[in-house]
Design a protein around this nucleic acid. Structure first.
Lengths: 289, 289
DNA sequence: GAGTGGTCTAGACCACTAT
DNA sequence: TAGTGGTCTAGACCACTCC
């Protein structure tokens, strides 16, 4: 497939080149180095020539070489460290990522099909799952969990009758000190406020809900969008400014349809794949066609 | 919520500023203009001062002002047109996007809850759905549909016994001439090869399969990742180089478990939201806890 | 023709890394 | 101390848009 894609790419670079007559100097550098990385000529971790070296080799100014390197940074083909250099970082990871890297499925982090089938059954334990993978998970609370007045957005999503107090938690989740995601979550206060005084530690919240109140979390609705990180998120998640993040809004209902959580998760996109399975239910009109 | 987020942002800009002592000149411009846009002081479509103007106003060189504008471009807060200028383009769109913009759900494009519940039942008709929205959909075939030898990747995903011929379609899908997504899809040749000689036009493929062969598409598995666009994709989808795209790999099975499609969709992230609903199935051990 | 973004140049200083 | 990326400067030419 990567072979096929390369063919397509080349097919379409020709008209592109002829359309613009000539490529810019920076663009030529991007294509050359980019191709070397994609073809594996330069391997992951390998250090690239310095900006000044590249400028000399390609006969351009340092700013032009730098601009090419910035493009490769944006494409996440390389990474840079001030005072050290540029390093190949990516394509091998990304190729494998669709199946093999850390993945989220139904709110759980998984890393392969076997675990997937297990994890399908669980909900709400970033902590426990990372533990199982041998990683060291950690919650960093960016605000003290507290009862706060529901904003309009929260009122709507939790379907509250009026602006009530809700339990808000806002935290950064990490594993092995790598930031995975920001989570801002809201819960109806009457069910959850006691966890403010009696911490439940790392027991999954919905497990606690089941045990304490006999209420079962059941239906989940998730909406995902991908967008570039803003400066706050790039700072918190340790990614570059325009690196993609995935915003996941999740609404959780009980088996009786009562909404018990609304959360917005902002995840570092490169650490995540999201898997979903569902059945096609053809419309009656289509069956009859 | 946007109020809350702003508070967080400010809380975290202080340590950031003190940590680095002072911000760079470009960064100061980014923060100032970025804040103006986010707060709505400059409205969507509004034209920003030119690079030379900004440079003069902030007392910096044109390249510094330009670098700040590039950052804002990366954050998708502004757009630029050569020979015309920079224009505010974003936050209002993005705020509304989670619920209101064009969305994909189960392979269908939807735009609100009502249509969502309808579209849940259908599969495989970007064309028909766009029609229903009053948009003009179009398929641009980037390769002639053909029987091709299955690559290793395709062999694996279609679970073929050996490297056989498969039907490949590779196309760009647009609506109102706006590029939405690249689709590369593979099908077992024995079921689908006749569409090469007898085009089915815009009849949904799985509807045709049901009518022609009495075979019902049923189970779908989707894996989503978000990543920056490469140069080929940014060219085809009309987006900037590091703008996010969503890679969606989809496997479709019949009601008997036979795989009848494997596809990789590369979608312009800013045009899509993805919705999924599912039920939590607690593990036995957790129920017993 | 005046103004615009896109590209490029040949320098410069800084903070940081490695040795 | 030498080399690195990060930032910035003050110019320049080009293709394009708008009038």
């Amino acid at each position: 497939m990567s072979g096929d894609q390369l063919e397509n790419r080349e097919v379409n670079f020709d008209p592109f080149e002829s359309k613009d007559g000539e490529l810019g100097k920076a663009e030529r550098i991007v294509l050359e180095i980019g191709a070397d990385i994609k073809e594996g000529k330069i391997q992951e971790g390998y250090r690239l020539p310095s900006e000044r070296d590249l400028a000399a080799r390609f006969g351009v100014s340092r700013m032009t070489a730098r601009s090419a390197l910035q493009t490769l940074l944006n494409e996440e083909l390389i990474v840079s460290y001030a005072g050290r250099g540029y390093f190949v970082a990516g394509i091998p990871d990304r190729e494998a990522s669709t199946r093999d890297r850390i993945q989220e499925y139904h709110g759980e982090i998984i890393d392969d099909e076997t675990i997937l089938s297990d994890e399908l059954q669980v909900s709400g334990s970033f902590y426990e799952y990372m533990k199982r993978l041998g990683r060291e998970p950690r919650d960093e609370f960016l605000e003290q969990p507290a009862l706060v007045p529901a904003s309009e957005e929260v009122t709507e999503h939790l379907q509250l009758s009026s602006k009530e107090l809700v339990l808000k938690r806002y935290r950064l989740q990490l594993a092995d000190n790598i930031p995975y995601r920001l989570i801002e979550s809201y819960y109806p206060s009457e069910l959850f406020q006691e966890i403010l005084t009696k911490p439940i530690d790392h027991k999954p919240l919905f497990k606690w809900l089941q045990d304490r109140h006999g209420i079962t979390a059941k239906q989940v609705k998730e909406v995902l969008i991908a967008r570039p990180a803003n400066s706050y998120e790039s700072d918190r998640l340790g990614i570059s400014l325009c690196a993609p993040v995935v915003d996941l809004e999740r609404t959780v209902r009980t088996d009786t349809g009562r909404i018990i959580e609304w959360a917005r998760i902002t995840a570092s996109a490169k650490l995540y794949a999201f898997r979903y399975e569902y059945d096609i239910r053809l419309k009656q009109s289509m069956r009859e066609y």
